[in-house]
């Protein structure tokens, strides 16, 4: 008999205890992040979409060889100073975002950006081409300087100089912001944020 009343009392008190907990949660701010309007601040080393600063790339094929799924496609023509890169592409259908391609790069051309939310309607557009089909990029440093591309200093900051074509390689070509010769942004190029085309 006493057990009967003890049970009732226990039931009621545990119900009230539970309701107290839910009430506490009710008045707290929810933990949800409202995604398109609010985003996480990403750590510096976050591995997002692979980005290639094509004017620094010299087609050494280091990234292509390092990639575990062979998703970097590089095609070149010519030899020596006349070597041109006709295609540099990343196939994001295959990319596993491991970041192995970043380490071998001798010129710090390739990096992983903080983008993660590109969305498209067609899978074929996930192959990002960084070299325009009609403007192959010269691979050799001297050729670039002759042609008006210029090579950014590895350690220098940004500037806004004009290209200075010279006969001999200048010891310290002026570092500058990405110039006009840099490919008109490839269809799914570098810094868009998740926009479909």
């Amino acid at each position: 008999m006493a057990q009967y009343f003890a049970d009732i009392f226990h039931t009621v008190s545990s119900v009230l205890q539970g309701m107290g907990i839910t009430l506490k949660h009710f008045v707290r701010k929810p933990v949800t992040l409202q995604y398109p309007d609010e985003r996480w601040v990403l750590p510096e080393r976050f591995r997002g979409f692979v980005h290639n600063n094509i004017i620094r790339c010299n087609a050494c094929l280091g990234c292509a060889k390092a990639c575990p799924v062979s998703c970097i496609y590089i095609e070149t023509e010519g030899k020596g100073k006349d070597r041109y890169m006709t295609r540099w592409a990343v196939d994001f259908n295959k990319c596993i975002w491991c970041g192995f391609c970043v380490d071998p790069c001798p010129t710090n051309a390739i990096s992983m950006s903080h983008d993660y939310d590109h969305s498209l309607y067609d899978r074929r557009r996930l192959v990002y081409e960084y070299v325009p089909p009609d403007k192959p990029v010269p691979c050799h440093r001297e050729k670039r300087l002759e042609m008006g591309y210029f090579v950014e200093e590895k350690s220098a900051g940004e500037g806004a100089e004009q290209p200075k074509p010279r006969a001999k390689p200048a010891p310290d070509p002026a570092p500058a912001a990405p110039p006009a010769p840099a490919p008109e942004s490839p269809p799914a190029g570098a810094d868009r944020k998740g926009e479909d085309q």
Binding site: T22, H25, F26, V27, R28, P30, V31, T32, Q34
Partner: peptide
């Protein structure tokens, strides 16, 4: 909404 807030989330927004 009540269910959401009691579960530390927002519900329909």
């Amino acid at each position: 909404k009540v269910a959401g807030f009691m579960q530390s989330r927002y519900g329909p927004m």
